[in-house]
Design a protein around this nucleic acid. Structure first.
Length: 379
RNA sequence: GGGCAGGUGGUCGAGUGGUUAAUGGCACCAGACUGUAAAUCUGGCCGCGAGAGCGUACGAUGGUUCGAAUCCAUCUCUGCCCA
Protein backbone atom coordinates (compact mmCIF):
# COMPACT_ATOMS: atom_id res chain seq x y z
CA UNK A 1 0.00 0.00 0.00
CA UNK A 2 2.91 2.36 -0.45
CA UNK A 3 2.16 3.11 -4.09
CA UNK A 4 1.28 6.67 -5.07
CA UNK A 5 -2.13 7.71 -3.76
CA UNK A 6 -4.80 8.36 -6.37
CA UNK A 7 -5.88 11.63 -4.82
CA UNK A 8 -3.62 14.33 -3.45
CA UNK A 9 -4.23 17.89 -2.38
CA UNK A 10 -2.00 20.86 -2.95
CA UNK A 11 -2.65 24.04 -1.01
CA UNK A 12 -1.88 27.11 -3.11
CA UNK A 13 -3.03 30.01 -0.99
CA UNK A 14 -4.99 30.88 2.11
CA UNK A 15 -7.15 34.00 1.96
CA UNK A 16 -5.79 36.39 4.54
CA UNK A 17 -9.16 38.01 4.95
CA UNK A 18 -11.33 34.90 5.39
CA UNK A 19 -9.07 31.90 5.89
CA UNK A 20 -10.51 30.19 2.80
CA UNK A 21 -8.29 27.74 0.93
CA UNK A 22 -7.27 27.95 -2.70
CA UNK A 23 -5.91 24.62 -3.87
CA UNK A 24 -5.65 21.87 -6.43
CA UNK A 25 -6.76 18.28 -6.16
CA UNK A 26 -4.76 15.93 -8.33
CA UNK A 27 -6.74 12.97 -9.66
CA UNK A 28 -6.13 10.24 -12.22
CA UNK A 29 -8.32 12.18 -14.66
CA UNK A 30 -6.75 15.56 -14.15
CA UNK A 31 -6.57 18.41 -11.69
CA UNK A 32 -9.44 20.13 -9.95
CA UNK A 33 -9.08 23.76 -8.98
CA UNK A 34 -10.63 24.35 -5.58
CA UNK A 35 -12.90 25.49 -4.04
CA UNK A 36 -15.16 23.80 -6.55
CA UNK A 37 -18.84 23.15 -7.14
CA UNK A 38 -19.58 19.70 -8.56
CA UNK A 39 -22.72 19.06 -10.64
CA UNK A 40 -24.58 15.87 -9.77
CA UNK A 41 -25.22 13.19 -12.35
CA UNK A 42 -26.88 10.52 -10.27
CA UNK A 43 -27.65 8.05 -13.01
CA UNK A 44 -24.46 8.54 -15.02
CA UNK A 45 -25.78 11.75 -16.54
CA UNK A 46 -26.16 15.28 -15.31
CA UNK A 47 -29.82 15.52 -16.16
CA UNK A 48 -30.44 17.22 -19.52
CA UNK A 49 -26.74 17.93 -20.17
CA UNK A 50 -24.29 16.33 -22.57
CA UNK A 51 -20.71 15.94 -21.37
CA UNK A 52 -19.63 18.39 -24.06
CA UNK A 53 -22.01 20.99 -22.73
CA UNK A 54 -20.72 20.39 -19.23
CA UNK A 55 -17.20 20.98 -20.43
CA UNK A 56 -17.71 23.84 -22.85
CA UNK A 57 -20.71 25.74 -21.54
CA UNK A 58 -20.66 24.94 -17.85
CA UNK A 59 -16.92 24.35 -17.51
CA UNK A 60 -17.49 21.64 -14.94
CA UNK A 61 -14.25 20.14 -13.66
CA UNK A 62 -15.71 17.12 -11.95
CA UNK A 63 -19.14 15.54 -11.63
CA UNK A 64 -20.82 13.15 -9.24
CA UNK A 65 -22.58 9.91 -9.82
CA UNK A 66 -24.37 7.51 -7.52
CA UNK A 67 -23.54 4.03 -6.35
CA UNK A 68 -27.02 3.00 -5.27
CA UNK A 69 -28.76 4.12 -8.43
CA UNK A 70 -26.20 2.66 -10.80
CA UNK A 71 -26.16 -0.56 -8.81
CA UNK A 72 -29.90 -0.91 -9.41
CA UNK A 73 -29.71 0.22 -13.01
CA UNK A 74 -27.90 -0.65 -15.19
CA UNK A 75 -25.83 -2.59 -12.65
CA UNK A 76 -22.18 -2.00 -11.75
CA UNK A 77 -21.07 -5.13 -13.60
CA UNK A 78 -22.49 -3.75 -16.79
CA UNK A 79 -20.76 -0.40 -16.30
CA UNK A 80 -17.51 -2.25 -15.68
CA UNK A 81 -18.05 -4.29 -18.82
CA UNK A 82 -18.59 -1.04 -20.72
CA UNK A 83 -15.12 0.02 -19.67
CA UNK A 84 -16.00 1.92 -16.50
CA UNK A 85 -18.12 4.92 -15.78
CA UNK A 86 -15.90 7.43 -17.58
CA UNK A 87 -16.09 5.51 -20.82
CA UNK A 88 -19.71 4.45 -20.36
CA UNK A 89 -20.92 8.04 -20.11
CA UNK A 90 -18.21 9.65 -22.24
CA UNK A 91 -16.79 11.89 -19.52
CA UNK A 92 -13.02 12.02 -19.32
CA UNK A 93 -12.67 14.40 -16.41
CA UNK A 94 -12.77 13.37 -12.75
CA UNK A 95 -15.81 11.65 -11.29
CA UNK A 96 -16.83 11.19 -7.68
CA UNK A 97 -19.32 8.52 -6.69
CA UNK A 98 -21.45 8.82 -3.63
CA UNK A 99 -21.79 5.56 -1.77
CA UNK A 100 -25.53 5.23 -1.30
CA UNK A 101 -25.32 6.73 2.16
CA UNK A 102 -27.64 9.50 1.13
CA UNK A 103 -30.20 6.93 0.00
CA UNK A 104 -30.15 5.51 3.52
CA UNK A 105 -31.55 8.91 4.41
CA UNK A 106 -33.75 9.76 1.43
CA UNK A 107 -35.27 6.29 1.05
CA UNK A 108 -36.12 6.25 4.73
CA UNK A 109 -39.32 4.24 4.43
CA UNK A 110 -37.77 1.71 2.12
CA UNK A 111 -34.78 0.56 4.09
CA UNK A 112 -33.71 -1.19 7.26
CA UNK A 113 -30.36 -0.36 8.86
CA UNK A 114 -28.38 -3.17 10.44
CA UNK A 115 -24.80 -3.39 11.64
CA UNK A 116 -23.93 -5.50 8.64
CA UNK A 117 -25.33 -2.96 6.20
CA UNK A 118 -28.58 -1.60 4.84
CA UNK A 119 -31.42 -3.56 3.37
CA UNK A 120 -33.21 -1.51 0.74
CA UNK A 121 -36.50 -2.23 -0.91
CA UNK A 122 -35.87 -1.02 -4.42
CA UNK A 123 -37.93 2.05 -5.26
CA UNK A 124 -38.13 0.66 -8.78
CA UNK A 125 -39.64 -2.77 -8.29
CA UNK A 126 -39.78 -3.39 -4.55
CA UNK A 127 -37.10 -6.06 -4.69
CA UNK A 128 -34.85 -6.52 -1.66
CA UNK A 129 -31.31 -5.21 -2.06
CA UNK A 130 -28.51 -5.23 0.44
CA UNK A 131 -25.64 -2.78 0.55
CA UNK A 132 -22.87 -3.21 3.06
CA UNK A 133 -19.64 -1.24 3.26
CA UNK A 134 -17.94 -4.08 1.37
CA UNK A 135 -20.67 -4.12 -1.27
CA UNK A 136 -20.43 -0.36 -1.69
CA UNK A 137 -16.70 -0.71 -2.30
CA UNK A 138 -17.26 -3.49 -4.82
CA UNK A 139 -19.74 -1.31 -6.70
CA UNK A 140 -17.65 1.85 -6.54
CA UNK A 141 -14.56 0.02 -7.70
CA UNK A 142 -16.47 -1.45 -10.61
CA UNK A 143 -17.74 2.00 -11.55
CA UNK A 144 -14.20 3.36 -11.39
CA UNK A 145 -14.67 6.94 -10.23
CA UNK A 146 -11.59 8.90 -9.17
CA UNK A 147 -13.00 9.67 -5.75
CA UNK A 148 -15.22 7.19 -3.97
CA UNK A 149 -17.12 7.73 -0.77
CA UNK A 150 -17.34 5.52 2.27
CA UNK A 151 -20.72 3.99 3.00
CA UNK A 152 -22.34 6.04 5.74
CA UNK A 153 -25.65 6.99 7.21
CA UNK A 154 -26.86 10.52 6.62
CA UNK A 155 -29.00 11.21 9.69
CA UNK A 156 -32.25 13.11 9.42
CA UNK A 157 -32.79 16.47 11.10
CA UNK A 158 -33.65 16.51 13.86
CA UNK A 159 -32.34 13.31 15.45
CA UNK A 160 -31.82 12.65 19.12
CA UNK A 161 -28.36 12.68 20.63
CA UNK A 162 -28.59 8.96 21.35
CA UNK A 163 -29.61 8.04 17.83
CA UNK A 164 -27.06 10.35 16.25
CA UNK A 165 -24.30 8.93 18.42
CA UNK A 166 -25.14 5.34 17.59
CA UNK A 167 -25.45 6.18 13.93
CA UNK A 168 -22.16 8.09 13.88
CA UNK A 169 -20.31 5.27 15.61
CA UNK A 170 -21.73 2.77 13.15
CA UNK A 171 -20.70 5.03 10.27
CA UNK A 172 -17.20 5.03 11.72
CA UNK A 173 -17.15 1.22 11.92
CA UNK A 174 -18.44 1.10 8.36
CA UNK A 175 -15.68 3.49 7.28
CA UNK A 176 -13.09 1.11 8.70
CA UNK A 177 -14.67 -1.74 6.78
CA UNK A 178 -14.72 0.32 3.58
CA UNK A 179 -11.05 1.08 3.97
CA UNK A 180 -10.31 -2.55 4.63
CA UNK A 181 -12.26 -3.65 1.56
CA UNK A 182 -10.90 -0.98 -0.75
CA UNK A 183 -8.27 -2.41 -3.09
CA UNK A 184 -7.82 0.03 -5.96
CA UNK A 185 -6.02 2.63 -3.87
CA UNK A 186 -3.73 3.66 -6.72
CA UNK A 187 -6.66 4.53 -8.99
CA UNK A 188 -9.37 5.68 -6.61
CA UNK A 189 -9.24 7.77 -3.49
CA UNK A 190 -11.61 6.72 -0.72
CA UNK A 191 -12.98 9.60 1.36
CA UNK A 192 -14.26 9.21 4.90
CA UNK A 193 -17.46 10.99 5.90
CA UNK A 194 -17.69 12.82 9.19
CA UNK A 195 -21.11 12.47 10.78
CA UNK A 196 -22.47 13.39 14.19
CA UNK A 197 -25.50 15.44 13.25
CA UNK A 198 -25.86 18.69 15.10
CA UNK A 199 -23.89 17.70 18.17
CA UNK A 200 -20.41 19.19 18.30
CA UNK A 201 -18.86 16.55 20.54
CA UNK A 202 -20.09 13.85 18.17
CA UNK A 203 -18.62 15.71 15.21
CA UNK A 204 -15.32 15.89 17.07
CA UNK A 205 -15.38 12.21 17.88
CA UNK A 206 -16.27 11.29 14.32
CA UNK A 207 -13.52 13.46 12.86
CA UNK A 208 -10.93 12.13 15.28
CA UNK A 209 -11.74 8.48 14.65
CA UNK A 210 -11.83 8.86 10.89
CA UNK A 211 -8.63 10.88 10.74
CA UNK A 212 -6.87 8.09 12.58
CA UNK A 213 -7.80 5.82 9.68
CA UNK A 214 -5.91 8.11 7.32
CA UNK A 215 -8.20 8.58 4.34
CA UNK A 216 -6.94 10.63 1.37
CA UNK A 217 -9.82 13.05 1.85
CA UNK A 218 -12.68 13.85 4.19
CA UNK A 219 -16.25 14.90 3.82
CA UNK A 220 -18.80 16.47 6.10
CA UNK A 221 -22.07 14.63 5.73
CA UNK A 222 -25.41 15.03 7.39
CA UNK A 223 -25.79 18.78 7.26
CA UNK A 224 -27.94 20.78 4.89
CA UNK A 225 -30.77 18.37 5.61
CA UNK A 226 -33.45 20.91 6.46
CA UNK A 227 -31.97 22.64 9.51
CA UNK A 228 -31.97 26.42 9.97
CA UNK A 229 -29.05 28.25 8.45
CA UNK A 230 -27.54 29.18 11.84
CA UNK A 231 -27.26 25.55 12.79
CA UNK A 232 -25.78 24.69 9.43
CA UNK A 233 -23.15 27.39 9.81
CA UNK A 234 -22.46 26.47 13.40
CA UNK A 235 -21.69 22.84 12.60
CA UNK A 236 -19.84 23.74 9.42
CA UNK A 237 -17.58 26.17 11.25
CA UNK A 238 -17.04 23.79 14.08
CA UNK A 239 -16.25 20.75 11.96
CA UNK A 240 -14.10 22.08 9.14
CA UNK A 241 -11.18 23.10 11.38
CA UNK A 242 -11.08 19.52 12.67
CA UNK A 243 -10.21 18.26 9.18
CA UNK A 244 -6.63 17.72 7.98
CA UNK A 245 -5.10 20.65 6.15
CA UNK A 246 -3.21 18.56 3.67
CA UNK A 247 -6.23 16.75 2.29
CA UNK A 248 -9.36 17.71 0.37
CA UNK A 249 -12.35 18.76 2.43
CA UNK A 250 -15.72 18.03 0.92
CA UNK A 251 -19.04 19.38 2.13
CA UNK A 252 -21.76 17.11 0.84
CA UNK A 253 -25.03 18.32 -0.60
CA UNK A 254 -24.64 22.07 -0.60
CA UNK A 255 -25.64 24.20 -3.52
CA UNK A 256 -27.21 27.55 -2.76
CA UNK A 257 -24.87 30.43 -3.55
CA UNK A 258 -24.70 31.65 0.04
CA UNK A 259 -23.94 28.20 1.42
CA UNK A 260 -21.19 27.71 -1.17
CA UNK A 261 -19.53 30.96 -0.24
CA UNK A 262 -19.83 30.24 3.47
CA UNK A 263 -18.40 26.78 2.90
CA UNK A 264 -15.36 28.21 1.14
CA UNK A 265 -14.86 30.71 3.94
CA UNK A 266 -15.04 27.89 6.46
CA UNK A 267 -12.23 26.12 4.59
CA UNK A 268 -14.14 23.69 2.41
CA UNK A 269 -12.73 22.67 -0.99
CA UNK A 270 -15.57 20.80 -2.64
CA UNK A 271 -19.36 20.92 -2.69
CA UNK A 272 -21.99 19.19 -4.74
CA UNK A 273 -25.71 19.64 -5.10
CA UNK A 274 -28.70 18.63 -7.20
CA UNK A 275 -30.29 22.01 -6.62
CA UNK A 276 -29.19 23.88 -9.77
CA UNK A 277 -30.36 21.12 -12.09
CA UNK A 278 -33.48 20.32 -10.12
CA UNK A 279 -34.80 23.85 -9.84
CA UNK A 280 -33.94 24.32 -13.51
CA UNK A 281 -36.34 21.49 -14.31
CA UNK A 282 -38.88 23.19 -12.09
CA UNK A 283 -38.54 26.53 -13.85
CA UNK A 284 -36.28 28.51 -11.53
CA UNK A 285 -32.98 30.25 -12.20
CA UNK A 286 -30.26 31.49 -9.91
CA UNK A 287 -29.13 34.98 -10.79
CA UNK A 288 -26.82 37.69 -9.53
CA UNK A 289 -29.92 39.36 -8.12
CA UNK A 290 -31.45 36.32 -6.49
CA UNK A 291 -33.73 33.48 -7.37
CA UNK A 292 -35.86 34.04 -10.44
CA UNK A 293 -38.92 31.87 -11.05
CA UNK A 294 -38.91 32.17 -14.82
CA UNK A 295 -42.24 30.42 -15.20
CA UNK A 296 -44.02 33.24 -13.36
CA UNK A 297 -46.36 35.49 -15.32
CA UNK A 298 -44.20 38.49 -14.52
CA UNK A 299 -41.78 37.40 -17.26
CA UNK A 300 -44.31 36.75 -19.99
CA UNK A 301 -43.15 39.80 -21.93
CA UNK A 302 -39.71 40.18 -20.46
CA UNK A 303 -37.36 40.14 -23.40
CA UNK A 304 -34.20 40.42 -21.35
CA UNK A 305 -31.84 37.56 -20.47
CA UNK A 306 -32.29 35.44 -17.35
CA UNK A 307 -29.31 37.21 -15.82
CA UNK A 308 -27.99 40.22 -17.75
CA UNK A 309 -24.68 39.81 -15.95
CA UNK A 310 -24.26 36.20 -17.04
CA UNK A 311 -22.27 35.15 -20.09
CA UNK A 312 -23.68 31.65 -20.44
CA UNK A 313 -25.12 30.25 -23.64
CA UNK A 314 -28.70 30.69 -22.41
CA UNK A 315 -28.21 34.26 -21.31
CA UNK A 316 -26.30 35.29 -24.41
CA UNK A 317 -28.94 33.95 -26.79
CA UNK A 318 -32.37 33.76 -25.17
CA UNK A 319 -34.87 35.87 -23.27
CA UNK A 320 -36.85 35.26 -20.12
CA UNK A 321 -40.04 35.39 -22.18
CA UNK A 322 -38.79 32.65 -24.49
CA UNK A 323 -37.49 30.39 -21.73
CA UNK A 324 -40.72 30.91 -19.78
CA UNK A 325 -42.60 29.87 -22.89
CA UNK A 326 -40.46 26.74 -23.23
CA UNK A 327 -40.89 25.83 -19.57
CA UNK A 328 -44.63 26.44 -19.61
CA UNK A 329 -45.09 24.39 -22.74
CA UNK A 330 -42.89 21.68 -21.22
CA UNK A 331 -40.40 21.86 -24.04
CA UNK A 332 -37.14 20.06 -23.29
CA UNK A 333 -35.08 23.01 -24.42
CA UNK A 334 -36.35 25.14 -21.55
CA UNK A 335 -35.02 22.67 -19.02
CA UNK A 336 -31.76 22.43 -20.88
CA UNK A 337 -31.21 26.17 -21.10
CA UNK A 338 -32.00 26.68 -17.41
CA UNK A 339 -29.74 23.79 -16.45
CA UNK A 340 -26.91 25.27 -18.46
CA UNK A 341 -27.50 28.62 -16.85
CA UNK A 342 -27.77 27.43 -13.25
CA UNK A 343 -24.73 25.18 -13.50
CA UNK A 344 -22.73 27.88 -15.20
CA UNK A 345 -23.86 30.35 -12.57
CA UNK A 346 -22.43 28.19 -9.80
CA UNK A 347 -19.21 27.24 -11.57
CA UNK A 348 -18.65 30.89 -12.33
CA UNK A 349 -19.44 31.81 -8.76
CA UNK A 350 -16.70 29.42 -7.66
CA UNK A 351 -14.32 30.85 -10.27
CA UNK A 352 -14.83 34.20 -8.60
CA UNK A 353 -14.46 32.71 -5.14
CA UNK A 354 -11.08 31.27 -6.14
CA UNK A 355 -9.93 34.61 -7.52
CA UNK A 356 -11.09 36.47 -4.43
CA UNK A 357 -9.24 33.99 -2.22
CA UNK A 358 -6.08 34.69 -4.16
CA UNK A 359 -6.76 38.39 -3.71
CA UNK A 360 -7.37 37.94 0.03
CA UNK A 361 -10.74 39.53 -0.54
CA UNK A 362 -13.35 36.83 -0.03
CA UNK A 363 -15.26 38.46 2.83
CA UNK A 364 -15.66 41.67 0.89
CA UNK A 365 -16.81 39.66 -2.09
CA UNK A 366 -19.32 37.79 0.04
CA UNK A 367 -20.85 40.96 1.42
CA UNK A 368 -21.10 42.43 -2.05
CA UNK A 369 -22.61 39.24 -3.42
CA UNK A 370 -25.16 39.05 -0.62
CA UNK A 371 -26.20 42.62 -1.23
CA UNK A 372 -26.87 41.90 -4.88
CA UNK A 373 -28.48 38.55 -4.27
CA UNK A 374 -30.90 39.99 -1.77
CA UNK A 375 -29.77 38.19 1.35
CA UNK A 376 -30.49 40.47 4.24
CA UNK A 377 -27.84 39.08 6.57
CA UNK A 378 -25.15 36.50 6.28
CA UNK A 379 -26.60 34.53 9.15
C1' G B 1 -90.04 20.92 -42.43
C1' G B 2 -89.68 16.18 -39.21
C1' G B 3 -86.92 12.99 -35.64
C1' C B 4 -83.19 12.21 -31.96
C1' A B 5 -79.33 13.91 -28.57
C1' G B 6 -77.61 17.91 -26.07
C1' G B 7 -76.42 23.18 -23.90
C1' U B 8 -72.76 23.04 -16.29
C1' G B 9 -67.72 27.62 -13.64
C1' G B 10 -61.29 29.64 -18.59
C1' U B 11 -61.84 24.70 -21.01
C1' C B 12 -63.25 19.43 -21.26
C1' G B 13 -66.54 16.96 -18.38
C1' A B 14 -69.24 14.64 -13.63
C1' G B 15 -73.65 15.58 -11.22
C1' U B 16 -80.37 14.10 -12.63
C1' G B 17 -85.05 17.38 -6.36
C1' G B 18 -82.03 18.97 -0.47
C1' U B 19 -75.45 17.29 2.85
C1' U B 20 -73.91 21.43 -4.49
C1' A B 21 -70.26 27.32 -4.93
C1' A B 22 -71.16 22.39 -7.70
C1' U B 23 -66.27 15.52 -8.27
C1' G B 24 -62.27 15.11 -11.74
C1' G B 25 -58.76 16.30 -15.81
C1' C B 26 -56.52 20.28 -18.39
C1' A B 27 -55.28 25.39 -18.57
C1' C B 28 -54.01 29.35 -15.45
C1' C B 29 -51.70 31.61 -10.73
C1' A B 30 -48.30 31.04 -6.69
C1' G B 31 -44.98 28.35 -3.36
C1' A B 32 -41.39 24.50 -2.16
C1' C B 33 -36.94 22.08 -3.75
C1' U B 34 -29.66 21.58 -0.93
C1' G B 35 -24.41 13.81 -1.19
C1' U B 36 -31.80 13.28 -7.10
C1' A B 37 -37.81 7.69 -5.66
C1' A B 38 -38.16 15.00 -8.15
C1' A B 39 -39.24 17.55 -16.26
C1' U B 40 -41.59 16.56 -9.09
C1' C B 41 -44.61 17.98 -5.05
C1' U B 42 -47.99 21.46 -2.41
C1' G B 43 -51.60 25.27 -2.36
C1' G B 44 -55.02 28.57 -5.02
C1' C B 45 -58.36 29.00 -8.99
C1' C B 46 -67.05 32.98 -9.51
C1' G B 47 -67.16 38.16 -7.02
C1' C B 48 -66.63 41.02 -2.40
C1' G B 49 -64.50 40.20 2.61
C1' A B 50 -58.84 39.38 7.10
C1' G B 51 -62.84 36.29 8.74
C1' A B 52 -67.59 34.45 10.07
C1' G B 53 -70.16 35.47 5.97
C1' C B 54 -72.71 37.93 1.98
C1' G B 55 -73.92 38.17 -3.26
C1' U B 56 -74.43 35.98 -7.78
C1' A B 57 -74.30 31.08 -10.75
C1' C B 58 -75.41 25.37 -14.21
C1' G B 59 -78.56 28.57 -22.45
C1' A B 60 -83.21 32.16 -21.59
C1' U B 61 -87.93 33.09 -19.48
C1' G B 62 -91.93 31.39 -16.73
C1' G B 63 -93.84 27.49 -13.54
C1' U B 64 -94.21 23.13 -9.82
C1' U B 65 -92.06 22.56 -4.83
C1' C B 66 -90.67 24.10 1.95
C1' G B 67 -86.40 23.47 -1.53
C1' A B 68 -84.33 22.92 -8.62
C1' A B 69 -78.24 22.58 -12.33
C1' U B 70 -81.60 18.47 -11.51
C1' C B 71 -89.09 18.15 -12.63
C1' C B 72 -92.75 20.89 -16.28
C1' A B 73 -93.79 24.60 -20.35
C1' U B 74 -92.24 27.86 -24.00
C1' C B 75 -88.28 30.02 -26.46
C1' U B 76 -83.29 29.79 -28.15
C1' C B 77 -78.72 27.66 -29.73
C1' U B 78 -75.54 23.23 -31.16
C1' G B 79 -74.71 18.27 -33.24
C1' C B 80 -76.43 13.96 -35.86
C1' C B 81 -80.23 11.53 -38.93
C1' C B 82 -84.47 11.83 -42.36
C1' A B 83 -86.92 15.01 -46.13
Amino acid sequence: MDNKPAITYELLHVCKQSGARRGVIHTPHGDIQTPIFMPVGTQATVKAMTPDELKEMVEAQIILSNTYHLFLRPGHELVKEAGGLHKFMNWDRPILTDSGGFQVFSLGDLRKIKEEGVEFRSHLDGSKQFISPEKAMEIEEALGADIIMAFDECCPYPSTYEYTKKSMERTTRWAARCKEAHTTTDKQGLFGIIQGGFYKDLREQSAKDLIEMDFPGYAIGGISVGEPKEEFLDILRHTTPLMPENKPRYLMGVGTPDYLIEAAIAGIDMCDCVLPTRIARHGTAMTTHGKLVVRNAAYERDFTPIDPECDCYACKNYTRAYIRHLINTKEILGVRLLSIHNLRFLTKLMDKVRIEIENDNLLTFRDEFYKNYGYTKEN
